[in-house]
Design a protein around this nucleic acid. Structure first.
Lengths: 195, 195
DNA sequence: GAAGAGTTGTCTCAGATGAGACAAGGAGCG
DNA sequence: CGCTCCTTGTCTCATCTGAGACAACTCTTC
């Protein structure tokens, strides 16, 4: 399949499909959706769907990747000065894409997506692990299996925190939830560094 | 121009243009907009615009007419039992189309639209004038020039009330604002019936 | 396990759409 | 006035899209 990008019609089709998918996940959950349902909502033909995407997983994946790109851009602007600032930005990002993440992570979402997100976050945590967030590991040169395992644990924690936060209607400001979760993350890293 | 309706593509184009127009009125005001700007936001060609509409006034007009159709449907369901109920439904309708009416009636809207709405409301008031709302006129058979003038005044009052209500962020519930304005309307009718 | 209903993924072709060019008109400016 | 820049409204043609048909597949339900 040739993944087109130049044409306005193609980009419009993709936009309509993305919006329709998010709406429908909110209404009926991801797993229950059929391609025909999505394309009907998007006012697009079923053929147009298959011209752009493999299946509905491909579609969410691209929505998610786009969201992640937006997040990474936001993180670039913050710089790496203050470790918690990254997570403030992260939760601000979640808040901005509230409907999307609520749809994908909430009760009607698919576990498949939570895995996807956990993996992406684990990569982020690993990248940050080289930096100032994980001072202990850097100091003690603790190159155990913790280097793979701990980021996974921390990422899981962040996904859980995000899910909880969204489902409760975001009771804390991004700054606050970021503080709490990054303190938890630090504690995990610290504990792990003693292994 | 042949006004097409059957095709999905045509309806989609119209939907995209409607949404783009409302967005852009909110951002930059109605008068400042060019056709090119609207079509670009809608991800639609300029030619497609002219295939569906005469000009931007034609487009707002249709958005408004669609909104009015929705309102009249809602009014049908209410029935004519309780005069204020009609106005409760009216303000509930305004609230439902909050963004649209705020955009069209607010500071960046066009006076042209306020006139349009006043005329539509005057017709509504005249229709209701035959009914139970205007008990006085019916009782006293007051067929003066008031039959044309008073509905205009009342309609103007409703437009003003609507504008005020939207700009203040809808401080009252639809029921409450409906109560107050319909009392005003009754007072106007009562006074006029003594002429 | 057979039948029925619904979904998926692919294909074709008529038909609607986007790109772009065009003349005409208006607004701002010296 | 003349000049430039932008917008409008219309047209043509290449291109993308929707409709619909199709076989293959998966569930239910008997």
């Amino acid at each position: 399949m040739t993944r087109q990008v130049a044409n306005v019609r193609v980009r419009r089709t993709q936009k309509l499909l993305r919006e329709a998918l998010v709406e429908l996940i909110e209404e009926r959950g991801f797993d229950a959706l059929t391609i025909g349902e999505i394309t009907e909502r998007a006012m697009v033909s079923r053929a147009a769907f298959y011209r752009n995407y493999q299946d509905k997983y491909d579609l969410v994946e691209q929505i998610f990747e786009e969201a992640m790109r937006a997040l990474l851009n936001a993180l670039d602007e913050v710089g790496q000065q203050h470790p918690p600032a990254v997570w403030v930005e992260f939760f601000a990002h979640i808040a901005a894409y509230d409907r999307l993440y609520r749809a994908l992570l909430g009760g009607k979402g698919s576990p498949w997506f939570a895995r996807k997100m956990r993996a992406a976050l684990a990569d982020m945590v690993k990248a940050l692990g080289q930096g100032p967030l994980n001072a202990h590991a850097a100091e003690h040169h603790s190159h155990t299996f913790a280097d793979d395992f701990v980021p996974d644990v921390v990422a899981t924690m962040f996904v859980e925190a995000t899910t909880w936060w969204l489902e409760k209607g975001r009771p804390y400001a991004p700054k606050e939830i970021a503080m709490r979760t990054s303190l938890l993350a630090s504690a995990i890293f610290k504990e792990a560094s003693t292994w």
